[in-house]
């Protein structure tokens, strides 16, 4: 698990001093952007999410990790209004979000991407981008019939979209259908499209899943770039390398609950996290675990 191979020469400094008091699950933050209280979501008999208290720090990169089925994506859905919790309150930048539909949450500046990338296949890359733009009057039915009312804004949006596409190295593909992009390029497009909305909080659901190592590097830099521009990032990820490398704060969920949180290096050493997620064999050879290669057994931990 060497993190030095791909690290840039001058790595972005981690943000520290985010919390108040002793680190424990649900610790108060100096400047929380999202506050969650008593949010729970049940699917039949299954408790998918049951979070007593959680705060997401503003202006930092927070990773949400945990085993499959821990409720990470469900929590994402609850925060963004794509799903409704059974109990609890939660707020974003001081606005209570209970009962607010997803599109209004997005308008407030909380934008998300999806675990299964949602590129709008039969729209061109540029159209995908323009769709993210805010305050285009031409999106209203009556205005849309009169092009002179929205043409100027459209040109502005296009310039902004091209700038972002250039940053994400997709500018040469602007007239291609999004469907023709590779999986990794779609991830980039989805992130770039999210940025068109001028978000305050960017929520990325497994941004690295299925992305090749070379692209991972540029995605990482894009994520770090978001923080540099003053945005808050919350992401779900299984790639521990990425989590260690860029996350200022890590929240660990298991069975719907927050079991640990803290700065990356500290959390990874937490026995509860190792038990629930990382596994006690994380330093063992894969062959020993599967039993296909017999190596001299170590003593039990």
């Amino acid at each position: 698990m060497s993190s030095s191979a791909n690290t840039p020469a001058n790595p972005a400094a981690k943000t520290t001093g985010l919390h108040i008091g002793e680190i424990r699950p649900g610790v108060a933050k100096v400047d929380p952007i999202v506050t969650i209280d008593g949010v729970s979501r049940h699917f039949g008999g299954l408790t998918a999410v049951d979070v007593e208290h959680l705060e997401i720090p503003r202006g930092a990169i927070t990773a949400l990790i945990g085993p499959n089925g821990a409720g990470k994506t469900t929590l994402f859905n609850l925060l963004t209004g794509f799903d409704k919790p059974d109990t609890g309150t939660w707020s974003f930048a001081g606005h209570a979000l209970a009962g607010i539909p997803a599109f209004k949450v997005a308008q407030m500046g909380q934008v998300r991407t999806f675990q299964l990338t949602k590129a709008l296949s039969l729209l061109t890359v540029l159209e995908n981008m323009k769709l993210g733009a805010k305050d285009q009057r031409g999106e209203k039915l009556l205005y849309s019939l009169f092009p002179f009312l929205w043409k100027a804004k459209e040109a502005e949006i296009e310039a902004k979209a091209m700038e972002l596409l250039k940053r994400f190295k997709l500018d040469t593909k602007k007239d291609d259908f999004a469907a023709s992009l590779s999986g990794g390029q779609r991830k980039l497009l989805e992130m770039a499209r999210a940025l068109m909305t001028d978000p305050v909080l960017v929520m990325l659901d497994e941004p690295m899943a299925g992305v090749n190592p070379a692209l991972t590097q540029s995605l990482l830099e894009h994520v770090l770039g978001l923080k540099k521009e003053g945005m808050t990032v919350l992401f779900v990820e299984h790639d521990m390398h990425m989590v260690r490398h860029i996350a200022d704060w890590v929240i660990v969920m298991a069975e719907g609950k927050v079991v640990a949180e803290g700065p990356a290096d500290q959390v990874m050493k937490n026995p509860a996290v190792i038990d629930a997620y990382l596994g006690s064999h994380q330093d063992d050879d894969l062959g020993t675990i599967t039993g296909r290669i017999t190596l001299p057994k170590k003593g039990k931990k």
Binding site: A106, V111, N128, L131
Partner: peptide, 13 residues
Amino acid sequence: GIREDEDAVRALG
């Protein structure tokens, strides 16, 4: 956009 994926469009506000 809605024809292609309405959740993606919803996520864009």
